[in-house]
Write a protein that binds this DNA or RNA. Structure first.
Length: 575
RNA sequence: GGGCGCGUAGCAUAGCCUGGAUAAUGCACUGGCCUCCUAAGCCAGGGACCGCGGGUUCGAAUCCUGCCGCGCCCGCCA
């Protein structure tokens, strides 16, 4: 109820100055009510007792009296137990809804545009994407969509694991497999583990692999060609998964570790210049204030290993420099699991201390918890290995297909298959996005695909129901953009309140990088709609009521569709 | 041992940043509602010492602090 607070504030301001209360003493008190049963906006007057030397009850009464009729047409005001309660006036609310109705952006404002880099997904070359990449991909993609909608230029960066010592064995394995077959034929499901097994058991293979790493780092053309085959094969796989998921990432967003390889010595040089770099057991490291290891000794961030190789930390630092110097961004989001919190904290510290980032740079680790199985442990396949993401997506669509076939047999095979795709993928994404990302979440098919509760299908169903109203009577949705809205029924008011809160929920979701705040509001809207729809006939009503209700339906559908789209979830017209 | 995070009805969660009233939502449970726009739904009801103890405050799920429990991280992986 941000709008109502802002509408009331000036009215209250003049009253408070009449009563001789300083702005500082009351300004923060006016806020959305904690319980909508009381009011939309409330002001507890208890802390004013000290200033006004009266009881909260008397103060609230006095303010109410002084406000007089100034709030007419905006809200109704009452005084209860030392609280001033403000309830939105139906005409005032209807006015806002009409603004939203005629607005393509549904009253969502844009911010001054910034260039925001979002680091997400980050699968590994020569491996299948697995469940470990799910949350980063889903959350990162939602943030990409949300912040773009908020007016920013988002630069997605997909830091695929495409470099480092494992590639020696991967390339040698590729040679053993018969390169002439072409990269299309590489079977990623066992490629990495086969190579690893050979590396561990076959010393001849292992030494070839080590030699190959050296040749790779020397950019030997033949080796790079083989490496490229592995990358290309993997990109085909990544893109297949991204397309199935409906994720925005493309090959243009690939920023693998190899991209920064040539910049790594420069990072070492720069850190050497600052005098931060120290030597420890042959490695070049930075010691940071406040970090201790298990034994209580200072814990370093390793910049260059004793063997001359580099770590992830160095790549991250090179990447930070690249973003500032080449990408032109000062806002970095890292959508990476919570277990890497310490790593990022240390990298950011070094980057700031070395002046790679000044105070204007916002570098944020957007962390998230684990995907858990119903057994309470980290989700794994029956054999204990990582669950392949593609399998997970296929199963979701398959399960959705079976449900849709049962619930709505009238759909054609083609339409059912489209709908199943939207429902299945939407269900997986929504399950992830609808709870606070910092918590672990439990992966449960039955729950996420249920049509009851805070699930994607429930929201999609609400949207589809509205679409069917319009298609039933062949009403052109654009024709009601200028309709007058009248909120005469209690449930129309409730729906109106839910819809009005959409922009502020979205803003809050953006600023805290928490998609669940948007999801929660969408669920509230869908619930309010279902409740309204039950008792307020739309097509069966007449005159201005019919026009008004059609407008409410259109606004609800567009809000749900927009909101789901911002989360990366499709809204079927029928289901 | 140190650091970070989490702990809210049987289960899953929101609210915590920025303190405010009878702690919100969903699942599950109980009872009602389809000659009527998708019952894939709606309405009503029961169910919570907000992990435990201190402190700050007129007021604490929310802020501070000490415990307890769980998870993750803690030197050449990413």
């Amino acid at each position: 109820m941000r709008n109502l607070v802002e509408a009331i504030r000036p009215l209250l301001g003049s009253v408070m100055s009449q009563l001789g209360v300083a702005e500082l003493d009351w300004n923060d008190l006016l806020a959305g009510s904690t319980d909508s049963a009381f009011a939309d906006v409330a002001m507890p007057c208890h802390s004013l007792s000290r200033v006004m030397r009266k009881s909260p009850n008397v103060i609230a009464d006095e303010i109410l009296e002084t406000l007089g009729s100034s709030t007419d047409g905006v809200c109704e005001v009452s005084s209860v137990n030392g609280f001033l309660n403000f309830s939105a006036d139906s005409r005032w609310l209807a006015g806002l809804l009409q603004d939203a109705l005629s607005d393509d952006r549904l009253r969502v404002s844009t911010e001054e545009s910034r260039v925001i880099v979002i680091d997400y997904s980050s699968p590994n070359v020569a491996k299948h994407m697995h469940v470990g990449h799910l949350r980063s991909t889903v959350i990162g993609d939602a943030l990409n969509r949300m912040l773009t909608h908020k007016g920013h230029r988002v630069v997605p960066e997909n830091h695929i694991g495409d470099w480092g010592t494992p590639f020696g064995m991967l390339i040698e394995h590729l040679i053993d497999m018969g390169v002439e077959k072409g990269s299309q034929d590489i079977d990623l499901s066992t490629f990495y583990s086969d190579a690893r097994a050979k590396f561990d058991s076959d010393s001849e293979f292992a030494s070839r692999s080590r030699a190959r790493v050296v040749r790779m780092q020397a950019s030997e053309p033949e080796t790079i060609e083989l490496w490229q085959m592995l990358v290309d094969r993997s990109l085909i796989h990544f893109n297949e998964v991204y397309q199935r998921m409906g994720v925005l990432l493309t090959d243009d967003d690939i920023a693998g570790e190899s991209k920064y390889e040539s910049a790594l010595p420069g990072v070492v040089d720069k850190l050497t210049e600052t005098g931060m770099l120290e030597e420890s057991d042959g490695a070049k490291v930075v010691y940071l204030e406040g970090w201790k290891n298990r034994d209580g000794d200072p814990l370093p961030l390793i910049i260059q290993k004793a063997d001359g190789g580099y770590n992830y930390a160095t790549t991250d630092l090179a990447c930070i420099l690249d973003r500032i110097e080449n990408v032109g961004s000062r806002d970095f989001l890292y959508v990476v699991g919570a277990e890497q919190a310490q790593h990022f904290s240390m990298v950011f510290d070094v980057a700031r201390n070395a002046d790679f980032m000044d105070e204007e740079v916002n570098s944020i680790h957007v962390s998230f918890g684990l995907v858990m199985g119903t057994d309470g442990k980290k989700l794994a396949s029956r054999t204990g290995g990582a669950v392949h993401l593609n399998d997970l997506l296929l199963e979701a669509v398959e399960r959705a297909d079976a449900i849709v076939a049962q619930k709505n047999p009238s759909l054609s095979d083609e339409e059912r298959s489209e709908v199943a795709n939207m429902l299945g993928i939407g269900a997986i994404k929504y399950a992830d996005l609808s709870t606070d990302r910092t918590n672990n979440y439990t992966f449960e098919w039955e729950k996420m695909l249920s049509f009851d509760g805070n699930t994607a299908p429930y929201l999609q169903y609400a949207h589809a129901r509205i679409c069917s109203i319009f298609s039933k009577d062949g009403i052109d949705r654009n024709s009601i953009r200028e309709a007058n809205i009248y909120l005469n029924h209690e449930r129309e008011m409730a729906l109106g309140r839910a819809l009005i809160a959409f922009p502020e929920a979205f803003d809050s979701a953006c600023s805290s990088h928490s998609p669940h705040k948007l999801a929660t509001q969408l669920h509230t809207i869908a619930q309010a709609f279902a409740s309204f729809y039950e008792v307020c006939p739309v097509l069966g009503s007449e005159g201005e009521t019919r026009g008004s209700r059609l407008a409410l339906c259109d606004l609800t559908a567009r809000t749900l569709q927009t909101g789901l789209d911002l989360l990366g979830i499709a809204s079927p017209q029928r289901m």
